[in-house]
Design a protein around this nucleic acid. Structure first.
Lengths: 197, 197
DNA sequence: CTTTTTATATTTACACTGTAAAGATTAAAG
DNA sequence: CTTTAATCTTTACAGTGTAAATATAAAAAG
C-alpha cells in the first residue's frame, strides 16, 4: 500500500505533463500558436482534459509563469553567488547580465511573467516566487545604495533592465547599435545612476 | 467633378471609421475583447468589410500603432517645446514625464506600439513615425551627452522609461512605493546615469 | 472479491475568432 | 444608359476556450 507516492491513476500525472508540454511549446513555436488545445495535443490527451487540472488556460499559463519565476530566482542567485567576492556594484552588474540572459533565453515565459495575461494574484506560488525575485534584487541593490534608498533604487534597476529586455525582444532597438555593447553600457549607466543621492 | 477629394462611395470612408472605432475600442474595453469583428460592429458594417481596407487585423492594428507614434512624437515635441529655455537635463526630464504620461493614458495603443503583434516593417508609416520618435529622443539626449554617445545613451533612456511604463501597466511594481515618487526618482537616476563617461 | 464511489478523460456542443470566396449593391467611367 | 470597378454582405471554414454529458478506470467500502 504505497501511500507515500502521490502519482495516481491511468495517465501518469497529467498535470505535470501539461506544464512541461506548455513550456516546451513556448520554446518551440510562436506564442500565438500556443493554444490550450495545442498543449493538450502535445501531452497526447483530448482538448478538454486540462480542465480537471487547470480551471482555465490563464491558470495553466500562470503556473508556468510561477515556475519561470523560480528559475529566474535561481539564475539571479547563481550570478550573485559567483560574484560573491566582487564589489557590490560588480555583483549588481553580474546579476543584471544574468537577468538579460534569462529574458533572452526564455523570452516567451518571460513575456508571461511580466505580461498582461497572467495576473500576480492568480496563485500563491506566483505571488511568492515573484516576491522572492523582487527582494533578491532589492538586497543586491541595498548593498550599493543602502537599505533606505533600496526600494526606489531597485525599481530603477528593474525598469532599466526590463525595458531593455522588452525593447530587444520586440525588435524596437535601432539597427545600428551592437546589442552586446548596448547591454554592457546600459548596465553601467544604470549602476552609475544609482550612486546619485 | 470633384476629383481632388478622395472620399468615395456609399459608406463615407470606412477606412478612417475603422481606425477610429479601433482606437475607441482600445480605450474602452480590455484588449482581449478588441477583435476585428468587434471593430467592424462598432463601425456598423459586416465583419468582412474591413478586408477591403486592411489585409489583416495585424495590418489594421499596425496602422493604429503608426498613428499612436505620431501622437507620441507630438507629445514629446510639446514637452520639448515647453521646456525650451531650461537646461538640457531638465528638458530630458520633462520629455520623460511626457513619455510616461503618454504610455499611461494610451496604454493599449502603447502596448501595440511596442508589443509583438505589430511588426515595425509592416508599413512605411510605421517605420517612419517610429524612427521620428527615436531621433527626437536621441536629439534631446545629445544635448546632454554630446552627439557621440547619444545613440547608446538614448537606448538607456528609452529602456528605463519604457521599462517603468510596462512594469506599471502590468502591475509588477511593489505595492508599497508611491507611483508618482517612483517616476520622478527614476527619471532623476536615469539622467544621472547619463552623465557618466 | 464485489460493489460503490470518486477522479479522470473523452465526446459533444456552443459561442466566439480571423480569414477567404462568392454574391449583391452601388458608385464611377465610358 | 451601359459597363466596369470598387465596396459591402453573406456564407463558409478551420481554429479557439469553455462547459456539460458521457465513458472509463482506479480507489474505497462492504
Amino acid at each position: 500500500m504505497p501511500t507515500a507516492t502521490q502519482k495516481p491513476y491511468h495517465h501518469g500525472d497529467l498535470r505535470e505533463h501539461l506544464l512541461l508540454a506548455g513550456e516546451q511549446a513556448l520554446l518551440e513555436m510562436p506564442i500565438d500558436d500556443v493554444s490550450l488545445r495545442e498543449i493538450a495535443r502535445r501531452a497526447g490527451v483530448s482538448h478538454a482534459a486540462p480542465k480537471h487540472h487547470f480551471a482555465s488556460m490563464a491558470d495553466l499559463l500562470g503556473e508556468i509563469a510561477a515556475r519561470g519565476f523560480q528559475k529566474f530566482v535561481n539564475a539571479l542567485g547563481s550570478a550573485a553567488e559567483e560574484s560573491k567576492r566582487q564589489t557590490a556594484e560588480d555583483r549588481l552588474h553580474a546579476m543584471g547580465r544574468a537577468y538579460l540572459r534569462f529574458a533572452d533565453e526564455n523570452s516567451a515565459v518571460y513575456g508571461l511573467m511580466f505580461g498582461q495575461v497572467v495576473k500576480m494574484s492568480m496563485t500563491p506560488a506566483l505571488t511568492k516566487s515573484s516576491y522572492e525575485a523582487w527582494s533578491q534584487l532589492e538586497n543586491a541593490v541595498a548593498q550599493v545604495t543602502g537599505a533606505l534608498r533600496a526600494p526606489i533604487a531597485a525599481t530603477h534597476v528593474w525598469s532599466s533592465v526590463h525595458g531593455l529586455s522588452m525593447l530587444k525582444s520586440a525588435r524596437r532597438l535601432p539597427p545600428h547599435v551592437s546589442l552586446h555593447a548596448v547591454e554592457e553600457d546600459n548596465l553601467r549607466m544604470m549602476i552609475a545612476g544609482l550612486k546619485e543621492a
